[in-house]
Design a protein around this nucleic acid. Structure first.
Length: 416
DNA sequence: TCTGGGGTCCTAGGACCC
DNA sequence: TCTGGGGTCCTAGGACCC
C-alpha cells in the first residue's frame, strides 16, 4: 500500500566504512582514505573528490589520488554501528526495511501523530545518528520507495531532501537516468545510444519503443518508474533465497588440484553459513569464469536438501567438471563460485534423531550423510570457540594465492 | 578500469504433466 | 496417431544492487 503523502524515508549512511574508520581514528578525519586493498570497498568524500569510487581497482585509485591512504577494515565495528543506527530508526516506526548494512526504508505514516512530520522525524534521526553513532546519514523522503531512494542519493553528503507529492515529476525528470533503480552500465549505455540521458527523456519514450530497446521486463519497469509509479511497500521480513561464496583466482591454469582445493574451501564457507542459519538447499549452482571474464554456470537440483561440506564440495566438483568439459579450449580460469538455493529449514534437532531406515530415500542423511553432518557441526562448534582459523579444510593452502581475507568478504558497500 | 564478494530478479527454452 | 493449451519446474545466462 502506498501512502498518500510523502511518508517513506530512505536513510543511507554516507561513505559508511570510510566514515567509521574516520570515527575510530581521528587522524583520518579530513583525509582521503579508502577501505579495502586490491579493490576499493568504500572511499571517503575527500577521496571521492579525486574520482575514487567504490568498486575501483586499488591501483587505479592510487593513480587518481596519490596521497590516498588505504585503511584496514574494522568489520565488527561496521556491523555494530550499522545495527545501532537501524535501532535508532526503529524508535520511530516498526516498519523498517533494512536493505543492506548501511541503508533502510521506513514507513512513518503511522508515527506522525507521535513524532510530528516526516521531515521532523528525519531531522531527529539524522541528529541522533550523528550524536549517538558519530556518523553522517542522508535521508530522502517521498511518497514512494523509488523516489525516496533517489532523493537520498541527491541529498548526499549529509543532507535531507523532501519530495512533496505535487512536485514529484519536477524533481525526477531532470535527473540522470543512472540514478534510477535498475539502470546499470549496460542499460545506461543502451539509452545513451538513443540520446536518452535524463529520466524525463526516458519518460517521454513510448512504452513500446522502450520495451523494444530494453526488453519487455526492464522496459516496462523503467517506464513506470520514470512516471513515478512504484507500488512497492515496506517489507520488514527478509527470506534468504540463496547462500553462496566465490573466489577470484587471478589467472590460474586449470588443474584438478586447484579446483578441488578451491571448491572445498568455498563449500566449507557456504555449508558453515547454511548450518548456522539452520538451512539446507536443494539446488547447487557453480560459476566458472574464464580468461576474458566470460563466465558460465552449471546447476543441479537434488532430490533432497543438503548442508554438509563434503557433499556440497562433491556436487560442486561434478558441476565444474561438466562446465569445463563444455569448454575444452579454455586453459585458464579466473574465478570459481558456488551457491545453494531452494533453501529449506533444517533444524539442528535432526542430529539427535535416530536414523530411520524407512526415510533413507528421502533425505541425504543416511548413516554416512548424518555422520558427515555431525562432524561439520562439531567443526562449527570448535570454530565458534577458538576462531575460524583453528579448523580448516583448505583455507591455509588457499591463502598463498593472495586471496582476499575472509573478513573482507560479504562486506561490500560500493557506494559509487 | 581488467575488477572483490554476496546477493536478487528476469528471461527463455525445454521437459513434463494434465 | 496427431493435435491444442496451460501450468510448473529445471537450467543457463544476464543485468543489477550493495
Amino acid at each position: 500500500m502506498v501512502a498518500d503523502g510523502a511518508t517513506i524515508l530512505h536513510a543511507d549512511l554516507d561513505a559508511f566504512y570510510a566514515s567509521v574508520e574516520q570515527l575510530l581514528d581521528p587522524s583520518l578525519r579530513g583525509q582521503a582514505i579508502a577501505v579495502g586493498g586490491g579493490v576499493v570497498l568504500a572511499a571517503s568524500y575527500e577521496a571521492k573528490r579525486y574520482g575514487v569510487r567504490g568498486g575501483m581497482a586499488g591501483r587505479r585509485a592510487r593513480e587518481l589520488c596519490p596521497h590516498l591512504r588505504f585503511v584496514g577494515g574494522h568489520f565488527a565495528e561496521y556491523q555494530r554501528l550499522g545495527d545501532q543506527v537501524i535501532d535508532i530508526m526503529r524508535d520511530f516506526t516498526p516498519l523498517v526495511e533494512r536493505i543492506s548494512i548501511d541503508e533502510a526504508f521506513l514507513d512513518v505514516a503511522g508515527s506522525i501523530h507521535l513524532f510530528g512530520s516526516p521531515r521532523t522525524m528525519a531531522i531527529e534521526i539524522r541528529r541522533r545518528t550523528r550524536l549517538e553513532a558519530g556518523l553522517p546519514v542522508s535521508v530522502g523522503i517521498a511518497r514512494t520507495k523509488h523516489l525516496a531512494k533517489i532523493a537520498s542519493q541527491v541529498a548526499k553528503p549529509d543532507g535531507l531532501i523532501v519530495v512533496e507529492p505535487d512536485h514529484e515529476l519536477d524533481f525526477l525528470h531532470p535527473l540522470p537516468v543512472e540514478l534510477m533503480w535498475g539502470v546499470g552500465p549496460v542499460t545506461q549505455a543502451r539509452l545513451a545510444e538513443q540520446g536518452i540521458t535524463t529520466i524525463g527523456e526516458l519518460a517521454a519514450i513510448p512504452g513500446r519503443s522502450l520495451e523494444h530497446l530494453l526488453g519487455r521486463g526492464v522496459g516496462t519497469k523503467l517506464g513506470s518508474l520514470a512516471w513515478n509509479q512504484d507500488p512497492r511497500a515496506i517489507e520488514t521480513t527478509h527470506r534468504a533465497g540463496s547462500v553462496g561464496a566465490q573466489s577470484a583466482l587471478g589467472r590460474k591454469e586449470i588443474s584438478t588440484e586447484l579446483i578441488r582445493m578451491t571448491l572445498r574451501h568455498l563449500a566449507d564457507r557456504v555449508a558453515t553459513r547454511l548450518r548456522a542459519k539452520e538451512r539446507a538447499g536443494k539446488t547447487v549452482t557453480v560459476r566458472v569464469r574464464f580468461a576474458e571474464m566470460q563466465s558460465v554456470t552449471r546447476s543441479i537440483t537434488l532430490p533432497a536438501a543438503i548442508s554438509a561440506t563434503p557433499i556440497l564440495a562433491e556436487v560442486g566438483y561434478s558441476l565444474v567438471t561438466t562446465a569445463l568439459r563444455d569448454h575444452p579450449q579454455e586453459r585458464v580460469i579466473t574465478l570459481l563460485a558456488i551457491s545453494v538455493s531452494h533453501l529449506v529449514f533444517e533444524a539442528a534437532l535432526q542430529l539427535e534423531l535416530p536414523i530411520d531406515i524407512g526415510e533413507e530415500k528421502q533425505r541425504p542423511g543416511t548413516t554416512a550423510g548424518a555422520a558427515r553432518w555431525a562432524l561439520d557441526r562439531s567443526v562449527d562448534g570448535v570454530r565458534e570457540r577458538f576462531g575460524r582459523k583453528s579448523v580448516g579444510y583448505a583455507s591455509v593452502a588457499l591463502s598463498e594465492t593472495g586471496a582476499v581475507p575472509d573478513e573482507f568478504r560479504e562486506l561490500a558497500e560500493k557506494d559509487g
